[in-house]
Amino acid sequence: MSTEEEKAQIAGEEEVTIFDKIVAKEIPADVIYEDDLALAFRDINATAKVHFLVIPKDRQGLTGISKSEEKHKELLGHLMITAAKVAEQENLSDGYRIVINEGKFGCQSVYHLHIHVIGGEQLGWPPTGIKEEASS
């Protein structure tokens, strides 16, 4: 598997994900922020000068945003506030993009809710990834 699209096509809801292993310190990561609820670390496949992920340390069943329920609203709010806090820490005052991939067509390859924060340079619009043949 070489592309994220290919990985997303075969990904499933694993009991233990790579992100669970990062939280457990079983796999190293370049952690840039941590508190009781969230962990932020640099994406190893960065798509911009700055690209980090914000994840819940305890998934609480949140394998993706589509699994969110009323009981998750405090955690989801905390993750968004954490993303903004770390973006400021990373000097992204000129702006950044927040992305949550959902499901195989959304290119989700790890089923542990995670927020991509991308910036540090001028980003384009619309975001890439929409195939020409799909828009025809």
Score class of each variant (00 low, 15 high):
S109L: 10
A84M: 05
D43Y: 10
Q108D: 10
I81F: 10
V31S: 04
I10S: 13
K57P: 07
E69V: 06
S66M: 13
S68E: 06
C107F: 09
L39A: 03
L76S: 08
E6M: 01
R59G: 12
F52M: 09
T47G: 13
S68D: 00
Y111E: 08
N91R: 05
K73W: 00
A48F: 07
K71H: 02
H78T: 07
F41S: 05
I65W: 14
C107W: 03
K67N: 15
E34N: 08
E14C: 00
E26A: 09
D58Y: 07
V16R: 11
G77E: 08
D35N: 15
L53F: 14
E4C: 03
V110I: 15
D36P: 02
V99S: 06
T3A: 04
G77N: 11
E90D: 00
I115K: 04
S68G: 13
A40Y: 08
H116M: 12
E34D: 09
V110Q: 09
V31C: 11
E102P: 00
E121W: 06
S109N: 15
H72Y: 06
I27D: 01
E90M: 15
G120Y: 03
F19A: 06
L79V: 06
I10A: 10
A8C: 08
H112N: 12
L75H: 08
Y33I: 03
E13I: 09
K49P: 10
I65S: 10
A29M: 10
E6P: 00
Y111H: 15
I27Y: 07
I27A: 08
I22Q: 03
T82M: 04
K49I: 01
T82E: 07
I32M: 08
L76M: 15
A87F: 02
Q9P: 00
R59N: 09
D35W: 13
F19R: 05
T3C: 07
E4S: 10
E4D: 09
D94S: 14
A83E: 02
K57G: 07
S93V: 01
R97W: 04
Q89L: 13
V86H: 02
T3R: 00
K73R: 15
L37G: 00
L76Q: 05
D36C: 02
M80S: 07
G61F: 11
E69D: 11
I18W: 00
I18L: 14
H78A: 02
G120E: 05
K67Q: 15
H51P: 11
V50M: 05
E121R: 12
P56F: 12
L37I: 06
A24W: 01
Y33D: 04
S93H: 13
A87Q: 04
R97M: 06
I118K: 04
E90S: 13
D20K: 01
V99K: 07
V23T: 04
A29K: 09
N101V: 10
H116K: 11
V16N: 01
S109R: 10
H51C: 10
K21Y: 05
M80C: 07
K73S: 14
V54I: 14
T63K: 14
F19Y: 12
Q89H: 13
N91Q: 10
L79W: 04
Y33R: 09
G106R: 08
T17F: 07
Q108E: 15
H112A: 12
